[in-house]
Design a protein around this nucleic acid. Sequence first.
DNA 1: GCGGTAGGAAGCGTATACAATGTTCGGCAA
DNA 2: TTGCCGAACATTGTATACGCTTCCTACCGC
Lengths: 248, 248
Amino acid sequence: MNQRQSLAEDGDAGKAKPRRLGKNGDGAERHEAIYRSISDAIIEHRLKPGARLREDALAEVFGISRTGVRKILQRLALEQLVTLTPRRGASVTRPTAEEAKDVFGARQMVECGLMPEIARRIEPDDVRELRDMARRERDALKSGEQSRAIKLSAAFHERLAQLSGNATLAAFVGQLCSRSSLILAVYGSSGHLGCESHDHDDLIGFLEAGDGERATAFMGRHLKAIEASLSIVEEEQEAPDLYRIFGS
Amino acid sequence: MNQRQSLAEDGDAGKAKPRRLGKNGDGAERHEAIYRSISDAIIEHRLKPGARLREDALAEVFGISRTGVRKILQRLALEQLVTLTPRRGASVTRPTAEEAKDVFGARQMVECGLMPEIARRIEPDDVRELRDMARRERDALKSGEQSRAIKLSAAFHERLAQLSGNATLAAFVGQLCSRSSLILAVYGSSGHLGCESHDHDDLIGFLEAGDGERATAFMGRHLKAIEASLSIVEEEQEAPDLYRIFGS
DNA sequence: GCGGTAGGAAGCGTATACAATGTTCGGCAA
DNA sequence: TTGCCGAACATTGTATACGCTTCCTACCGC
């Protein structure tokens, strides 16, 4: 996978640690970029649920120390994208069926609830931006770039939420969308990723017309459709229930 | 406040570091306890918005190193209870008027939306527990322990959300309640803290009767009432708008 | 031959040391 | 006396070192 290797730009023969920090101005931005890198890789399924994320390895790849890696990993853990097991390290979260249900339940409530306000506030510029995002998503889907399509779909839903003007709820929706990507990775049937290609365009139409009611109903169906497309079969993980399997 | 000082039990004369670690078994639990300690102090207004939280000081108070403190501080920052300013350190978040509006908007949507499901699922045991919490809150209020009352009120709302069975939304409500405590600290009129004393009991009544509709409406009024009791006057913070003040 | 235990290796948790930055106080000049 | 500049101090950011736990493997006993 292709997270940008900052090591390359150092041009030294690997072992010689850039002793200098590159920290001075850009420390925070650098961490943010690395966070985005990992987050994107997870959302785009380049890192699959269950994949182990060793601190040393990440530290070396990104050219920072484990301290910084841990900080980023903790943030990702709080957003439920990675799971931190006490003495075992980090791995990409494998959502349970229960979590999947909760996440889509939450999206149903929040995203639908946001529609009326969005329909009220939306501006022509916003419509243009959304249409552009929807178009790029369709293009990605058409050319087989599923990773890009997944990320763009999540970005669309998040941007939509931002238009409500409620930053707190928008951030929450953003998290829910990220987790949804993970859920799709585990329970999604291959070849059918979340959002139908024309759904988003239809939704924009309702919002542009200021028809919050119809937009709400449509979003509800949209999310229900995604959830219904999942094949949620709770695979036995911790306790394989041997009694049931080998029961006399 | 009463966080257990492990320094004390070492009984040495301060400077001699506890031969270190006490880490073995309880490392994680210890951090969790410290997190709770700080979190509670903020929610109960023992730490007021704007208060600086120096890493050294916290490290010494709790008998751990700055590393652990930073971890906890970052978690609190992600939950918006403390603000991390790049080279300036941590301080208790002072919510803006905008944030206050967003938080109550979010609560309105989520907590009201949860009511029907809660009314459907609630069990006699839950009712008993809620009534007990409401009673303790009233007692605290009556005996003037405002700190306890504030925390109990937030805990009540959070527990309520948990009864919906949706852990994701419950966690979100928990965060919103914590932030609400902060908002009360900044914008609340003294002597009138958030929830009216009998409101919670009335709400339990509706839920016990399985009347989700009435519970929803009541919760809506309840939250509106709290928000209305705030005196939100956007005090100029960053840019005091000197032109307006000293304008020729 | 199989199972159990011991020893080593690998990786995480914590503390500490060091570097960089922001702040404040004191001195010097106008 | 006042305003500006510089240096010391205080505090955070980052890296590294060390200890502990867990896992793997090999050896020994049965």
